[in-house]
Amino acid sequence: MQSESEEVSFEQIAIAVGIILLALVPLAGRHMTHLVASALLLSLAATSFNLLFGYTGLLSFGHALFWGVGGYTLAVMMSRFGLGYVESFVMAVIMSAVFGAVIGFLCVRHTRIYFAILTLAFGQMFYGVAVKWDFLGGSDGIYGLPRPFNTLELYYYVILAITLASLFILYKITRSSLGLSFMAVRDNAFRAKFIGLDVSRVRLTSFIISSIFSGVAGALYVLLETAISPETMLWTHSAEFVFVTLLGGPRVFLGPLVGGFIYSFLADVAMSATEYWLLVIGVVLVAIVLFFPHGVLGYFLKWREKR
């Protein structure tokens, strides 16, 4: 028993090494910094998506909507209302929560494919709003926003810090009694009802938390690109979150993070190799579903258990 608390586990070493490597990324040049920053944000969005999917059992196919809500709120607050970074960011978080509450309320009454299709439809609806509404910049979106500190490298550390903090909060949530109630609802909503859980409320809570952190990722991404376009809300972007999560492994907390990095690097290589890079992604996707449905991290953990 004594040794258990003192011994450093494999996971702790891996996470420490990972954080050190992430901190050193700006040394590897601008392209790599930008790539890793995008990978971090995609991973954060996928992890928050997975709170709803892997932990609560609800497959959202419209989660890019909240990425877009966070992003557009930040962009609008800065460019139309002249607010500063921090105020705009706080507004982005609040708006993500509000959108999450309203859309979640309409969607959590359904489950399974119905839930997936509803979230997808709401995502498309707001894509439609963004494309047609001049206030949001129409199909061009909003661009030319100033990046904090003016340098990519310093902003990278902002992204890294907020992403790690968000992941930590999400991890704590999955380990709390709230997280346990998510899993109870996922595993058997019928029984969860019998032990006194308000199933819809649990689902809605998960939905809102999940939207908030997707919004955080979207807001940070806007300043990385210094622009936002309506395409970020398209269902193809939502599908990216799903893909990344299944790639890494939905039943492991860090699965979406691993998937997010593999996907970002794979897409980066494929994009520079061929204009048909989506074809490559599509083939990988089909292969994963057919041959590796537990995700990279899922298989890795299984393999380690066996040894």
């Binding site: 497959l59 196919f61 997936a116 599509g282 990988v284 089909v286 994963i288």
Partner: peptide
């Protein structure tokens, strides 16, 4: 069914 949706999404690409 998430795998169904994902597989058929891969087919779209």
């Amino acid at each position: 069914e998430e795998y169904q949706l994902l597989l058929t999404f891969g087919l779209i690409l």
